[in-house]
Write a protein that binds this DNA or RNA. Sequence first.
RNA 1: GCCCCCAUCGUCUAGUGGCCUAGGACGCCAGCCUUUCAAGCUGGAGAUCAGGGGUUCGAAUCCCCUUGAGGGCACCA
Length: 486
Amino acid sequence: MESALKTSVRVRFAPSPTGYPHLGNIRTALFNWLFARHHGGKFILRIEDTDITRKVEGAEGVILDSLRWLGLDWDEGPYFQSQRLHYYHEVANRLLKEDYAYLCYCSTERLAVMRREQMRRKQPPKYDGHCRYLTQQEKLQLEASGIIPVVRFKMPLQGETTFHDLIRGQVTFKNSTLDDLVLLKSDGYPTYHLANIVDDHLMAISHVLRADEWLSSTPRHIVLYQALNWQPPRFAHLPMILGPDRAKLSKRHGATTIVDYKEQGYLPQAMINFLALLGWSLDDRTELLSREELIKHFSLERVSKTAAIFNKRKLEWMNGVYLRQLRPEEFIQQAIPFLDRHLPASVKRPLCSNYIRQIMPLLQERAKTLAEIPQLGSFFFLDELQYDPSLFLSSGLDAKTATQAIEIALRRLKIAGVWDANSLEGILRPLAAELNLSAGKFFGLLRVATTGCTAAPPLFQTMAVLGKERCLKRLTTALQRILTLL
RNA sequence: GCCCCCAUCGUCUAGUGGCCUAGGACGCCAGCCUUUCAAGCUGGAGAUCAGGGGUUCGAAUCCCCUUGAGGGCACCA
């Protein structure tokens, strides 16, 4: 079984360029990719651009970029359905000839009225088969009228269609609930249903792994395969990913496209790991898995059936884990573009790479995303710090004591020789005792003075990186500001 | 309205008849570490396994009903 799969697995990711890919789309791509890689099969990329009215400019480029960013490499394609119209026409003609399909001349207006009427009567909206039963004479008349018809499939009126879903098990639909779906639109493009099965067949797709929303169109596809006497692929319907309000993901939920996550500073490996765990699990404890481990262990049997609500907090945590795991040099390389883009314009570019190299280790274990690094470390770069002088008193010191403490610190630091973390600690820690201040309070004071923040990386290291000149200048400014509190 | 699917802590999940007085992770709370923050470590709160019926010596696990949620029902994918 396993070896048979190994030679024959061919799966595809088939997005339509009607928008940018969101988490759900990418999760589908990921599962297909993992399945292919696990079985040593092929992962094929196919762009389903058969709706020219909904096509979004640039969407396909974004789709490809997203896959590349995540490292989901494909073995064939991208194929474009818009360039394969002749295949669909050929199949539609064959179905027409073999009486599995018919031409339908109904106007969109008539269909809309029909549907509205059905809804009003609380009946399921369904094509009424008007053109299925045209007389020979009516056909000739309509043909002569110049109306461009669509091709509709003759859905069996009785019986039922059953298929085995690899995740859901046996699923059965009554054929009477299926309607005569359109195969070929009047603009000459196929509908999803036609193009999809034609390509899956022609491309020898072995397994269709797609989102749950397609489950109810699967019987239609099965019936089409039967009409064409083609062997259908195996199906596996993946659970959906929902927003926090349990609804389908949309713009309301904030970042939904994968590009947004890239821009917010999530790492592809974190994204992959997180997405893999949305609907799949290895066991009862493993959370962190590398790409290789995912490939090794991925299996459809461990895909869950329940829709998942995507939990951004957990993604943030996981991204932090991956950020901390980066080698320092790599962290720096990843951080630089974000610093460049998000540090205030007043900070001179190009940024000094030597300075950055010293700063980044202090930020690496504090950042959850790359995008928050500029924010976290902006005080390293700014000439003039903006902060509320009352921060000096936040630890409960009075203005007079604070003033004295900074004055003395300034005096001692001016005459400091070596300016590294150890030496600074050697000067400042005894000074706290000398001033009869707790280390926490005294260092807190200096922290505000040198960084403008009450929370920052360790004081001595921070001051060492800032350098003597900058620190003395900031302490002097701090002294001036604290005087306003007296 | 009709059809399909699903149902374990707030969220992601483990669990496939006895190992479950239900395990892990995120988040939350507390403690430790500590110059703040973060990280790390330790501990805690948090699920009468949606509800109700069965089946069985025994059910989160099997069956039925109810409820709830999601998806589909286009010349969109």
